[in-house]
Nucleic acid binder design. Structure first.
Lengths: 147, 147
DNA sequence: AGACTGAGTTCGAAATCCGAACTCAGTAGT
DNA sequence: ACTACTGAGTTCGGATTTCGAACTCAGTCT
């Protein structure tokens, strides 16, 4: 009946971490190579106290790591972890959506496959069938076999 | 000033619509077949005034539509539009992420390829290369050729 | 010394969020 | 005709979050 199944607990948990106006934008900035507090601040226009709190939380949940990059005046920067990088499919999905459906701003940029420059599509991949497929063929299965 | 690329504008725009704690959850509920005000309310535990405001905004941005389903006491329900449905890749991406990286709750449900039941992977697909690839090979191109 | 840098913290004002109770039109039961 | 109930909201005051601007603190540069 619905393709999400009832993995509701999972996504609620996730949204408690990244489901605010800034976190995804921070991840995006991280993907673009931004690492320093002030740079996040300038780039996103986020208020400093909020940035402090957000980064702390994202570190706590393993999306960024706080790395000392200098000793003399001790300075830290924030780098995406593996888990943080793994959010990019969600990010790309959102960008793709906005390219297709967003009414207000039409973007002049699009996402492509780096080696060849072709506009990318997003798909799910089944290792055993060796095929890609779309959201309609996704199903949730759980302990009680309920979809 | 902020130097967001143009795809930054797109995603910012999108997050202004769905980038809060509830909107994505509302879309998810919509995908699960929920349509009525009180049902959204009970299902998500969202406060009524907030639900009112959220639904209004999602309607305004074409993600839900408000449909009259009864005349005598005139009653409306909320249905996902095409655009709303198109958010499911993002939703699936988030569910997948939480299945793989979320520390706290391990979900008792997982997403699979419906025909064969194999756990799905998410990938980007290049039509011209006929290959799938990961986030590292994604690049944004725009007016100023900057990634 | 004085100015500057980077990563924050502190402040009060403004915007959001919350639960609980209320409204309003119509329906069903007695 | 009176009462209770339904569904989709609205109104209320109080609690939480967010905001911009200004401040701190260690160390560096001139």
């Amino acid at each position: 009946m619905n393709q999400q199944g009832q993995s509701g607990a999972a996504i609620e948990e996730t949204l408690r971490v990244v489901g605010d106006r800034w976190s995804i934008l921070l991840v995006r900035a991280g993907l673009r190579g931004i690492r320093r507090f002030d740079d996040f601040c300038d780039d996103l226009g986020i208020a400093r106290p909020v940035l402090t709190e957000r980064l702390r939380r994202l570190v706590k949940f393993g999306i960024f790591e706080r790395v000392k990059y200098q000793d003399k005046p001790v300075r830290y920067e924030y780098r995406l972890t593996e888990a943080g990088l793994a959010l990019s499919p969600a990010l790309v999905a959102l960008v793709r959506w906005s390219e297709e459906y967003s009414q207000e701003v039409t973007s002049e940029t699009t996402l492509v496959h780096a080696p060849c420059g072709t506009e990318l599509e997003q798909a799910f991949w089944c290792r055993s069938c060796q095929t890609t497929f779309g959201p309609h063929a996704v199903k949730g299965v759980g302990v009680n076999g309920e979809s």
